[in-house]
Computed example of a mutant assay.
Amino acid sequence: MNSLKLPDNAVLIPIDLQQAFDAAPWPPRWNDRVDENGLALLAAWRSAKRPIIHVRHDSVEEGSTLRPERPGNAFRPGFGPKGEEPLVTKSVNAAFIGTDLDLRLRRLGADTVVLFGISTDMCVSTSVRVGANMGYRVILVEDACDCFDLADGAGGVISARDIHRAHIATLRAEFASVVTTGELLAALGGAAAA
């Protein structure tokens, strides 16, 4: 997508890049480059001095590995806020529900958000849909997302890769512009040079 234009106030929003997702009870994931791609996005965004708002899931469910007092709640290595980058915590799937994310974006004058994280079909997808419905231009970085194998309810399992593909297709059809990490970094570089 060579025509991708990034306004100066586009906000990068990493979603739920937390340690819990690497261990039981979470099922297998598919994208072994999710951390590499996500860290590349953060580094480039910081280098360009563009706004970042981090999102972390603080579960209120008993026994959840994402509860604030559990080790799995912590960010994956290299993720999480640096300096004065803000953190929004949520306890539901959408980063906009029950948080001040919308207010923060409006105070920045942002109309474009760039999302990535875990998991494609749950918190990322829900945040994309809600953000689009609230009037934001949403850009989704597909290869900086990951999700899990999922039971199909009939004794089988749908592979994480297939779940990811289906959700990306749906989001692309109606809710977001979908790009790769390379495409976004190229657009960011072009915007910096302009």
Rank of each mutant, 00 (worst) to 15 (best):
S3N: 14
L4I: 02
K5Q: 13
D8W: 07
D8M: 06
L12G: 03
I13E: 05
I15F: 01
D16W: 05
Q19F: 05
Q19E: 15
Q19R: 15
F21N: 04
A24K: 14
W26E: 10
N31R: 05
D32F: 00
D35I: 13
D35T: 10
E36D: 15
E36A: 15
L41T: 03
A43I: 06
A43Y: 07
R46A: 08
A48V: 01
R50Q: 08
P51A: 10
P51R: 04
I53S: 00
I53R: 00
V55A: 09
H57D: 07
H57Y: 12
S59T: 08
V60L: 13
V60R: 14
V60I: 09
S64K: 09
T65I: 08
L66Y: 03
P71R: 09
P71Q: 11
G72D: 09
A74E: 10
F75H: 06
R76L: 15
R76H: 12
F79D: 07
G80A: 13
P81N: 04
P81L: 07
G83E: 07
G83A: 08
G83K: 04
A94C: 11
A95E: 03
A95D: 01
A95L: 04
F96V: 03
F96M: 11
D100Y: 08
D102K: 12
D102F: 09
R106H: 11
L108S: 00
G109R: 06
D111F: 00
V114Y: 01
L115Y: 02
L115G: 00
L115M: 15
L115C: 05
G117Y: 01
D121W: 00
C123N: 05
V124Y: 03
S127I: 07
V128R: 04
V130N: 06
G131T: 06
A132V: 04
M134V: 08
M134P: 00
G135S: 07
Y136Q: 02
I139A: 04
A144G: 02
D146T: 10
D146S: 14
C147R: 07
C147N: 10
A151W: 03
A151K: 15
A151M: 13
D152E: 13
G153W: 04
S159H: 12
S159G: 13
S159F: 04
A160C: 10
R161M: 14
A166Y: 04
A166K: 08
I168L: 12
A169C: 06
A169H: 14
L171A: 13
L171E: 09
R172Q: 14
R172P: 10
A173C: 09
A173G: 14
E174Y: 11
E174S: 15
A176C: 15
S177Q: 15
V179K: 12
V179S: 09
T181I: 04
L184W: 06
L184F: 15
L185A: 14
L185K: 10
L185P: 05
G189A: 07
G190T: 01
G190L: 07
G190E: 11
A192M: 12
A193Q: 08
